[in-house]
């Protein structure tokens, strides 16, 4: 299968990408690694008239420690996240989770920002950055603004990034030696999660338990109150509204969320 026709444009900076977005409006889509977008285009679930390639913008691909945070350029590839010594030291959850994205070939092309902006609720990285409490730096015609992780994911495949904006950086707090874990439940290793749980430093996020990745707030409260992993995990599915599909119905997903949360918390507690 092949995409419907489009015009391919290459941006050489974030500002250039914003200009091109302004010029082409809703007709345009940003292309980074393309590992989510190109399959969508091939299946003709979308047919933008213009693709703006940002994968070669040099100042969008970097990983650097910046105060209490690690700043990661949005077009940094999964592979580079996985192999980053800084991240393994400062935010070990993130490179670990990036290693679950797709397969090796996909990790050679796909980018952190691309995965986050695609905002598939079943994806690995949105869940991880939510647990980490990341901050998103978004650039538009009127300059840059920052969005908290809690506001970034707005719905099924929807984020706070406007049609005329581009995600340029993700800032993740340095968690250092805090306990962390990622529990992903799949039938095949390279599938999207049926349910996944990321836990770090007392924060817990769930993948595929609603239209966006969700914080397990009741669990987090229980943990803060001194509950054991099993006790805290009992409320992991509270407030969630998972889909039903051929892999799992609602009750089973809720059950998985509890089991995986308990396992993640036990691992994180080390």
């Amino acid at each position: 299968m092949i995409p419907a026709p489009f015009r391919y444009l290459r941006a050489d900076s974030a500002a250039h990408a914003v200009d091109l977005l302004g010029e082409h409006g809703d007709e345009a889509k940003l292309l980074a690694g393309g590992q989510s977008l190109l399959p969508v285009l091939k299946l003709r679930l979308a047919d933008p008239a213009v693709l703006i390639d940002i994968s070669r913008v040099p100042d969008l691909s970097y990983i650097r420690v910046d105060g209490d945070e690690v700043a990661i350029g949005a077009a940094t590839r999964h592979r580079d996240v996985v192999e980053s010594e800084e991240l393994r030291r400062e935010v070990p959850l993130l490179p670990h989770v990036a290693g679950y994205v797709g397969d090796r070939q996909i990790r050679h092309r796909g980018t952190l920002g691309g995965s986050l902006v695609h905002a598939d609720p079943a994806a690995d990285l949105p869940c991880a950055v939510l647990a980490l409490g990341a901050t998103f730096v978004v650039e538009g015609p009127s300059g840059q603004r920052r969005v908290d992780a809690g506001e970034f994911f707005q719905g099924y495949f929807q984020t706070a990034v406007g049609a005329d904006e581009i995600l340029v950086e993700v800032r993740v707090p340095r968690t250092g030696g805090a306990g962390w874990a990622y529990e992903k439940f799949v039938r095949r290793s390279n599938d999207w999660a049926i349910v996944a749980v990321a836990a770090v430093d007392g924060r817990v996020a769930l993948a595929n338990m609603g239209e966006t990745p969700l914080r397990a707030t009741a669990t987090e409260r229980a943990l803060a109150g001194g509950a054991s992993p099993a006790e805290a995990a009992a409320s992991a599915a509270e407030g969630t509204s998972p889909i039903e599909d051929m892999h799992a119905d609602r009750a089973y997903r809720a059950h998985l969320a509890r089991v995986l949360t308990e396992r993640a918390l036990v691992t994180a507690a080390g």
Binding site: Y8, L31, G34, L51, Q105, I106, R109
Partner: peptide, 16 residues
Amino acid sequence: LLDGESVKSCTVLAAQ
């Protein structure tokens, strides 16, 4: 292989 790394060539544009 693209610059020595494995990629899926059905999910890369020739333009890229």
